[in-house]
Amino acid sequence: MSIITIIGAGQMASALTFPATENNNKVRLVGTPLDRDIINIAKDTGFHTTLKRQLPKAGIEYYQIEDVNKAIDGAEVIICGVSSFGVDWFADNILPILPEEIPVLSITKGMITEEDGKMINYPQYFLSKLPANKKLSISAVGGPCTSYELADKDNSEVVFCGDDIKILRIFKNLFETSYYHISLSKDIVGVECAVALKNAYALGVSLAIGLAIGADGSGKEHYNSQAALFGQSIKEAKHLLEIVGSGEENIIYFGGDLYVTVFGGRTRRIGTLLGQGFSFEEAMEQLKGVTLESVVIATRAAKYVRSLAEKGIVKLQEFPMLIHIDEIINSGNIVDIPWKSFESEKI
């Protein structure tokens, strides 16, 4: 039995309590300042209000953020369970108090765009934010897995990535079950880039859903158009992964994560609303209070591509779908899928 401290009580972080406790580990679930009600209700009833599931009855202790030091004391691993909007909070408030000997596993998917346009993953960003002379081992989780279905113990294939294979094996032993299947990879840049990009492109594929059902929602969902946008997403992401030096196998994690994201959740909702003709502002108003990481990563990825184009490394025409998504989000453009730009001629 090991003690696992999860900091952040969101849906995916809390869903991990299922495989963790099933393996007879002791879990300490710590809420961020925004998770106070989640922790209070779960502590009293065992019910998670956003995951909408009863959490495991045994093996979990609940902590408010004021008791985070107590939750960390004696822990053998730390899970960073915040969303991309909590990354800076975690870096500023949690990283400085973590003992160097405790490895960290981040479930947060996304990228940070630096001033020069370069994208770095969250483990890289966390390491750059560490206090002087402090070292931590920070690994990450990627792959297609929704929190709801993990909690329901549906078979899921994920990948744990990091620079220390021995630590990755420790994490695998803690979490792998008959339904939670874990591959390991030292290609942290490739894996993290792949699973971050899927958020941007899932929004793009979902535009086809909104276009098909129409402004009043009375139309029928079409799959040819979704498949075409799915294919273009694979093409553009494959090119981006090559640019960052990713191993070619990581396109599997992009494709799988893209598939599961298009079939449900927050990203599908924002893409569908935009496809129905709502402006970005109107769509955001309808989804007020919903964490939309797809908007963040689409903006950052497009900024990165534009910076590469300015340096002559790529051409914007090579990424028509990503650029169109960015123009919808940040320039107020209406949805007008650039179908002709997807065509190619191979001789």
Rank of each mutant, 00 (worst) to 15 (best):
S128H: 04
T291K: 15
F126K: 00
C80H: 11
S279K: 09
G256Y: 03
F263C: 15
S147D: 03
W339R: 12
S341C: 05
N23S: 06
E345G: 14
V158E: 14
Y148P: 11
I270L: 11
N24P: 06
G256E: 00
V27K: 03
A228K: 13
L130G: 04
Y223I: 12
A212L: 08
A215N: 14
M321S: 03
A202V: 02
L29A: 11
L322W: 02
I297K: 09
V195R: 03
I4N: 00
S185F: 11
L174T: 05
P123T: 05
A140I: 01
L184I: 00
A298D: 08
L55A: 02
F342C: 07
I120N: 00
L207S: 00
S83L: 13
S233N: 03
A302L: 06
S84V: 08
K153N: 10
E157L: 13
E248P: 02
D67R: 07
A20W: 01
V260K: 10
D88E: 11
M12E: 01
D326A: 11
I3A: 10
P103L: 13
G74Y: 08
R266W: 09
L130K: 10
N199D: 01
Q232I: 10
G86V: 01
K26P: 07
G8V: 01
G190Y: 11
M321R: 04
Y148E: 15
E192G: 04
I347W: 03
N93V: 06
S225Y: 04
A140H: 05
F160V: 09
E176G: 12
L127S: 09
E310G: 13
E242Q: 14
Y63K: 12
E149G: 09
S2M: 14
K198W: 01
N224I: 05
H222P: 04
I209M: 01
N121C: 09
N24D: 15
E249T: 10
I6V: 08
E115P: 05
A9S: 11
D67E: 13
E345A: 07
V68E: 07
Y148I: 15
N173R: 15
E192M: 05
